[in-house]
Structure formats: structure tokens, C-alpha cells
Nucleic acid binder design. Structure first.
Lengths: 225, 225
DNA sequence: TGACATAATTTTGAATGCAAAATTAAATAT
DNA sequence: ATATTTAATTTTGCATTCAAAATTATGTCA
């Protein structure tokens, strides 16, 4: 009895749906860091009661995306330079691992797909289209992570990524740094194509270290300047 | 209704307290993998309503400790060999990082403390006191993690650790493996004492790889034998 | 008896209700 | 006016309630 699940009705619990929506609101910046999460307002907006909303907020809090203060509700966690300096090394370790694992398990088709993203990205770079560049960039990193075939790894990475994605997106690179990032991406692609896991891991780690530089520099300027 | 006051909750937010208590129940094995979480029973036991209990379960679910099935409640996530093979490499990467960071930041006093744990552990090893050995062992790894001065790293590690701690604890080592683990610990201590982060990271990673062998072997035997 | 249908019970997901804490507004004194 | 109380309002944390789903029990008929 092999029933195709393709058309199965996906019934999700409200809190689960809300976790996702709130995550999006935070990442896309509709809810900005430091801001109090307007519980009531969001409940009305999504037409749910406070119960599932509060469940969702608790989950987000455990992921570090919001901060709960006893008896005074939740606020979007503000990312400080210190946070970034904590998160990036951890993400670096995870990405390095993803590179190593990916090289063991990646298929030719997946390599080709990454190559395609890469060339798209280069195109956007040459045309100085930053948002499109970011999208292609993220596609590459996601593809590597997926090729690693480790859901735990992917989940951990997603979690940390969510915490800093907004800062990452907002910090716009200097021309110089952008050049460097692209150069690193050439190396990334090369390492994948020859399936050199050690090398890929190392580059990914370095790549992220440079990103940290960019982002924390921007954050420093933005928050105190 | 029979309420035992010694277990009733006093401090801080209920859901937060519950997260911790349930975590303990799972790790200590009072709630065993696969078992359905008896929501009502636990509510009575801790004398709380279902609301905070369910909030806590959602958090634990997001950490992978319990599994929520729509409309049929929550059960303790059963750890499979496949899970272990996913989790351990990630923990390995985190531990390796913790080793590197720790060597940069650890104080002489902390090194001394780790040395003390180490010697206690050796004593327990010689006397074949497994539980005490495990406790000292865990103290060492926790101390290294703490010395790394990275709360994000520690939190991620704690989360993964919780998921496999029970299996880790239950799998008893062969004499041979135990010898090896102790030998590795000698190397760990040596690397810390000379603050060789690269080396420490590498050993920790290898150490965990061996642990995976032990645990997954046991799990395979236990679940299908 | 055993396969199936149907009714009773329990469990689950989510809305609502309520008391305590926090915040804001108003009132009083300086 | 500016502090400082005090009162009103809102928000928060949690308990309770309620409808829908799932599970178990009961009844029916071959």
C-alpha cells in the first residue's frame, strides 16, 4: 500500500507555522533588533490566540532569536559585535565540517548546480547587483550544506545563520572586500570540483572569518557612529 | 489529587523550569526513548497546568529531544545509529573548536583544575568505577568548553550533548576502548598544558570519533540483538 | 467468534479567563 | 512647574475551558 504523499494535506500546528512566520519577520527586518515583540498585534494579524503565539516565542527564544524577560515579554534579540564574534567561529566550524562532508558525498549533478549558482553570482558581482549576488551566494552555501547530508549540521547552521543573517545582509561590503569574497568563491568552487574536503573546509572557514570582519566593522560603525 | 510538595515548582518562569526538569527526566532515563510523554501525569506531578508544560515540550522539540506528532502528542525522540552518526561529527567540530579557543584563553588556574579532574578520573579508571569516571570525564570536557569563553558554542554543544548523553552513558566500554579513551585523555591534558590548540582540537575530535564507535556498536547490539 | 461499525472516553490544540505584575495616567504635595 | 504617590490600564503568566481529533469500549451482525 504505497500511497503517494505528494498530495497529502499538510496540517501544521499553529505554533509551528508561527515560528516560521516570526522568523521571517525578524530576518527580513520587519521586527527590528531590540524592538519589543508586539504579541497582541501579531495575534490579531495572524488571527490566532495568544497561546500558540507564546509557544512560538518560547521556541524562538531557545534559538536565541528573541529574548524573554520575565514579566515583561519578549523582544527581538539585538545582535552585538560580541555576539557576532561568538557566532561566527561556531558557524565557521560548522561550515568547515559541511565542506568536508560535502566533498565525500556530493554528486556530479550537485557540483554542476553549484557551478551554475557560482556563475550567476559572478554575473551579479560584475553588474554590482548586491541583492542578487547575496541570493546566489546563499544558494551556494545552502547547496554545500545540503550535500553534506547531515540534517543535524544543517539545522544547527540554520539556527545560527538566522541569528546573524540580517546583520550579514545589511552590512554592505567595500569594493575591496567584495573582490576578495569573490576570489574566495573561486577557490571554493575549485575545491568542490576536485572534491578536496580539507581544502574546502579551510576556505569556507576563512571566508566566514572575512565576512565577520565586514559585518562587525559595519555593526561597530552603525551602532556607535 | 496527590501532590507531592517536594517536587512542586517555586522559582522563575514555569516553562523554563519545566524545560530543565524534562531534560533531566530524559537524560536520566526516567522518560525513555520512544515513550510517549505523559503530559497530564507530569502536569500533576509538578503541579502546573498544561500551558507551561506544552510550551516546554515545544522548546524541547525544537532542540530535538522530543518529537511532536500532530494531534497525538509528544514522545521522547529515539536515538538511532543514524542520528548518532549525524550528531557526533557535529559535536566533534564543536569540540575541536572549543579546544582551539580554550588554548587561547585558558588560565593557569583552569588548567590546574582540569589536571585535578584528570587525575581523579585516572583514579576511577584504575578502580574501574565507571559512573565516577564518567562524571570526572564530563567535568573535563565541560571545563574545556567553559575555557573557550563562547556561550554560543557551549549552548550548541549542550544541546547536542543532551540528545546523545543517555546513549553515551549506557554504552559501557570494552576494556580495550576504555584504555584507549584514557590514553587519549593523557594527550588531551598534555595539549592543554602546552596550550597547543590545533593539537587539542584534533585529539578531541578523534576522541569523539572513538566514542561514536563505542556507542553506535552498543546501540546496534541493543536495538536489534 | 471475529470483522466491522458506532458510541463513549480521553487526549490534543487552541481560545478564553483571571490574577499578578508592570506600565501609564492622574492626582497630590512640594 | 517638578517630584512623588496613587489609581487606572495594559500586559504578562498561567489556569481553565472547549471543540476537534484520536483512542478505546461497546454493540451489531455474518
Amino acid at each position: 500500500m504505497n500511497i503517494s504523499m505528494d498530495e497529502a494535506i499538510v496540517r501544521r500546528s499553529l505554533h509551528d507555522e508561527l515560528v516560521e512566520r516570526l522568523q521571517r519577520l525578524i530576518i527580513e527586518g520587519e521586527l527590528t533588533p531590540g524592538e519589543k515583540v508586539p504579541e497582541k498585534e501579531l495575534c490579531e494579524r495572524y488571527n490566532v490566540s495568544r497561546t500558540p503565539m507564546r509557544e512560538a516565542l518560547k521556541v524562538l527564544a531557545s534559538e536565541g532569536l528573541v529574548t524573554l524577560t520575565p514579566n515583561r515579554g519578549s523582544s527581538v534579540t539585538a545582535v552585538t559585535v560580541e555576539d557576532l564574534e561568538e557566532v561566527f567561529p561556531v558557524m565557521g566550524a560548522l561550515e568547515a565540517l559541511s565542506g568536508e562532508l560535502a566533498c565525500e558525498k556530493i554528486t556530479a549533478a550537485e557540483i554542476a548546480a553549484i557551478g551554475k549558482f557560482h556563475h550567476e553570482m559572478i554575473g551579479h558581482y560584475k553588474a554590482q547587483r548586491l541583492p542578487e549576488y547575496f541570493a546566489a551566494n546563499e544558494a551556494i552555501h545552502t547547496a554545500i550544506l545540503k550535500a553534506a547530508r547531515n540534517e543535524t549540521l544543517a539545522a544547527q547552521h540554520r539556527m545560527l545563520s538566522a541569528r546573524v543573517r540580517r546583520a550579514r545582509y545589511l552590512a554592505n561590503m567595500t569594493r575591496e572586500r567584495w573582490d576578495k569574497a569573490v576570489a574566495e568563491h573561486e577557490e571554493i568552487l575549485a575545491a568542490i570540483q576536485v572534491r578536496d574536503g580539507r581544502q574546502l573546509g579551510a576556505i569556507l572557514k576563512q571566508h566566514l572569518r572575512n565576512k565577520l570582519e565586514t559585518v562587525s566593522e559595519w555593526l561597530r560603525r552603525d551602532t556607535q557612529g
